[in-house]
Nucleic acid binder design. Structure first.
Lengths: 338, 338
DNA sequence: CTGTTAGCGCTTTCAT
DNA sequence: ATGAAAGCGCTAACAG
């Protein structure tokens, strides 16, 4: 008559059988007599039995929870990726521990540590803008914890990765600007420790090269993704002897900062300066910003799938694989020079 | 020589003492000989001992994880609240399981169930727009799981709650419009099953009454928070014989939808129609939307604190308390009529 | 097909 | 101050 949760022992006693049988019936082990199985299932239902996951975890030394470390939750990019992840993860009976690094390397390390302490079965990460050392991720792998990187990945580690074709996306964006008649296209480049930043830069330069446009290093500025730096950098570009006629920005939040400054200065977009961002954040449609859309939900799903595959498949030597998704240019007013 | 995690047994054996003592030393039970304690702590350090939380959980029947159910992650409101929650929660050694109801009552119920199955020690919830029955939350409490509601709360349940003074916030917003010269102020009201919607509506009507303005029911339309309905509702208001000269919207996403339509129709904001939202979403500053800001991070912190207080204090009869935070009107261009 | 027996790693009385 | 022992609830060989 305890008020306690009902356990398999309770239902075993009531039925005069052993708890092993109950366990087997409840977990669907085929080798159980149909009748007893039914009796067990019925009683379980009747008693509103709920299996105790902590016990399960301990017994199997599996926590059934996964971790994810992302830079931030403020733009719509990561929330969308997370939606995709949640879908597949919860379907498989896992839960998700979400940590924000707030773009800080230190915090990222702390996050990973606390997730490991929390006994996660696997981790998904998109690196902070400051991250270049990835010892903390290697340590993770040494402990045998499966890892999948996505979006912002490192090439100094062997793990599955899910990324988009940043080079192609950037190329198409810049190509579009060129075909719209832009000749002096500036690029606000992301931190060059991130592959994603380098690839987008490479897409930019390749597009210029392809169309025989000069690569002017004054027009390429790497910055740290902070709104303050975005502002300073933009000012610098606007104060150039010959002003750029287009900005291709590392991401949408950056493009939005640029847009604000152009508005403030009364510079017409796209007539005087055309503008293109990257990622198609929720706010971008609002201000008619041309951007390179990424298949965010799909990216999340894929990331989760790769991680789960690795978790449920530790026996055979797991082969890390890299999935490359395609981007899609979304042309809006900010680059429509008719 | 196992490759296994090092356990308290390992370190007990090495030191020739019992695991109980080790456990006590490691958890900081005062009654342990200083010398042995130090030896234990040192060895633990040396061996890089990490306590197994699953075992801890099982032994104490506490999972040290908390759940949160929110309508969505897309606007910046909930991410900010979550940041506040994360701070205090992780500091206390708990982890956070985040679920989105996607504004669906069914999903909300599913979320709660799966969190309960996940053995959470407590739950924080902001209801979906569809929720009016809260049997699922009462069931939670019957199971003895502490609950704190925030933002969108219900008055049909006894629990701690963290809300802002929606009435005051709405009143000030509408008062501001009135003082700016608006006379026909429309209100796009939220679903009236939510207290938050009713309070904002009440703030609106009270402001009108205070300034001797008529309350015109044609200007008050309840809608379901979907972009489609926002559009339809706005159209209806714009097709009125006498057009409104201001819109006070239930929240910022709504105001943004309205703004888009006004832009499309070539209606000048704020000259022809002034616009005010609620919550100060990230996108609002961008489009110069006047809005009522909420102390989001603080709301998160408070919510987490109340929950933890209840969890760590189950002995004495816990008294639910409601915290009322203050809003702040942020005037931007969308309502600046000279 | 089913029961028995060991754990999983830690906490917690109860003795000593 | 420390040890012995009994769980927490479930899984998983190993016998029958």
């Amino acid at each position: 008559m305890k008020n306690h949760q009902v356990t398999i022992i309770d239902i075993a006693r009531r039925l005069g059988i052993s708890k092993s049988t109950v366990s087997r019936a409840l977990t669907g082990h085929s080798q159980v007599n149909k009748e007893t199985r039914n009796k067990i299932l019925e009683l379980a239902q009747e008693l509103d039995y709920q299996r105790n996951n902590m016990a399960l975890s301990l017994a199997r030394s599996q926590s059934f929870s996964l971790g994810i470390v992302i830079p931030e939750l403020m733009s719509s990019f990561f929330p969308s990726v997370i939606s995709g992840i949640q879908q597949v993860v919860s379907e498989m009976g896992y839960s998700l521990l979400i940590c924000q690094s707030n773009e800080s390397y230190r915090t990222e390390i702390t996050n990973v540590k606390s997730l490991v302490a929390g006994q996660i079965d696997g981790l998904m990460v998109s690196m902070s803008k400051e991250t270049s050392e990835i010892e903390h991720l290697k340590a993770l792998q040494r402990k045998g914890i499966p890892l999948v990187m996505f979006n912002r990945v490192s090439d100094e580690i062997e793990s599955s990765k899910v990324i988009v074709n940043d080079h192609e996306g950037a190329f198409e964006a810049v190509e579009h600007l060129i075909l719209s008649g832009c000749k002096r296209i500036a690029h606000l480049a992301g931190p060059q420790n991130l592959i994603i930043s380098r690839e987008r830069l490479r897409g930019y330069t390749d597009a210029l090269l392809t169309y025989d446009l000069p690569i002017d290093n004054n027009l390429i500025i790497e910055y740290d993704l902070s709104p303050e730096q975005a502002k300073i950098t933009t000012m610098r570009l606007l104060d150039l002897p010959v002003i750029p006629d287009a900005f291709f920005c590392f991401n949408d939040p950056t493009a939005i900062e640029v847009m604000k400054i152009l508005w403030a200065r009364g510079i017409a977009v796209p007539e005087q300066i055309a503008l293109v961002g990257f990622s198609d954040d929720a706010a971008s449609a609002l201000i008619e910003l041309t951007t390179v859309a990424q298949p965010v939900v799909e990216m999340g799903q894929l990331t989760a799938q790769l991680l789960l595959a690795q978790i449920e498949n530790p026996l055979e030597e797991y082969q890390p694989e890299t999935r490359l998704l395609r981007t899609k240019l979304i042309v809006r007013k900010s680059s429509m020079r008719s």
